[in-house]
């Protein structure tokens, strides 16, 4: 059975579960700040829930540092993050992220009109580092903003006026551009135009970059910009879930390199046995599926779970 036929429905199910149900509020979900990001493209989420979700780790971090929430929450926050990372690395990007799903679907539509561009290897390597820079930037900003002096000095008056409680609780959130989804939502639903926030343009820019990138390069956002995915990437080489290669059967056919939306080269290029999970791997398993020789496999702690290489010649 094609693993992609399993993955796409699971993506939808996980997104719904994590965004619209209590499951999203469980301890491990502090890892899923996707929910913050969904408010950029799905204003409805914000409207339904009423107020912003406290699930972004940076927002939670901010609240803990300002004393709104107890510091003890930092343990499950970062513990959850680390636990998920150690278990599945960046797999949630491939199986549970709405941004990922949108890009995957967009990709399919794009092929009707034009072919994807391969990014030059050296550019790809350098740009891939950008998401870590962004992660560091936002983390440091969150830390900085928990210092009241800095927060007061650098925050927009509009925010302080608009959401005074939030600003007290988590000054960083006031700076976070997805926050203005409420503004976007009210815009769309014909509310007072005067409430247009300063970050609306930033949001629009992000949307434009997101879709333009997705139109040219598969998973552009995930590869180069997603600071959320970057936290998962950090765990990819040490997680329990791994991509493994048995080089003895590799005929360098190149299917895996072509199939990979993240432009990972290790499955094809590596000549020794063992792990081939690159930092960018989202475990979409397109490579494993494409391998005609049972060379690649998905393994959990050394045991192979999925080996692909299906007998393509069999009569369906």
């Amino acid at each position: 059975m094609r693993i992609q036929s399993l993955r796409n429905p699971i993506q939808i199910v996980l997104i719904l579960l994590l965004n619209f149900t209590f499951i999203g509020g469980l301890v491990i979900s502090p890892f899923l700040p996707v929910l913050r990001l969904t408010t950029v493209i799905n204003p409805f989420v914000h409207i339904i829930k009423g107020e912003q979700m406290h699930l972004c780790p940076l927002g939670t971090l901010g609240r803990c540092l300002t004393g709104t929430w107890s510091l003890g929450l930092l343990l499950p926050l970062f513990g959850g993050l680390i636990l998920v990372g150690l278990l599945v690395g960046r797999a949630l990007c491939g199986w549970g992220c709405p941004f990922g799903l949108v890009q995957d679907l967009f990709d399919r539509v794009r092929t009707l009109w034009f072919s994807r561009k391969k990014v030059r290897e050296d550019w790809h390597a350098h740009l891939s580092g950008l998401k870590y820079v962004l992660l560091a930037f936002f983390a440091l900003l969150a830390l900085a903003m928990s210092v009241p002096a800095l927060a007061n000095r650098y925050s927009e008056e509009l925010f302080k006026a608009h959401w005074p409680d939030l600003f007290q609780a988590a000054p960083f959130c006031a700076l976070c551009f997805p926050m203005d989804a409420s503004t976007l939502a009210t815009l769309i639903h014909g509310a007072t135009p005067g409430l247009l926030g300063p970050y609306t343009m930033v949001q629009l820019l992000v949307l434009v970059v997101f879709f333009a990138g997705a139109a040219l390069v598969p998973r552009f956002w995930c590869r180069y910009l997603c600071w959320v995915g970057a936290t998962g990437s950090l765990f990819n080489r040490v997680s329990l879930l791994q991509l493994r290669k048995r080089s003895a059967s590799c005929t360098k056919c190149g299917n895996c390199a072509r199939a990979c939306p993240m432009q990972c080269r290790a499955p094809m290029d590596q000549d020794g046995d063992g792990r081939v999970t690159e930092q960018g791997c989202v475990f979409c398993l397109k490579c494993v599926e494409s391998c005609p020789n049972h060379t690649l496999s998905l393994s959990a702690g050394g045991t192979s779970i999925y080996q692909g290489g299906r007998a393509w010649w069999k009569r369906s």
């Binding site: 092929t111 009109w113 034009f114 072919s115 994807r116 056919c253 299917n255 072509r258 494409s290 005609p292």
Partner: peptide
Amino acid sequence: DPAYVTESSLAGMLEA
């Protein structure tokens, strides 16, 4: 081995 098409664009098929 078969031709494994990952991209159904013209360039993708030529690549495959």
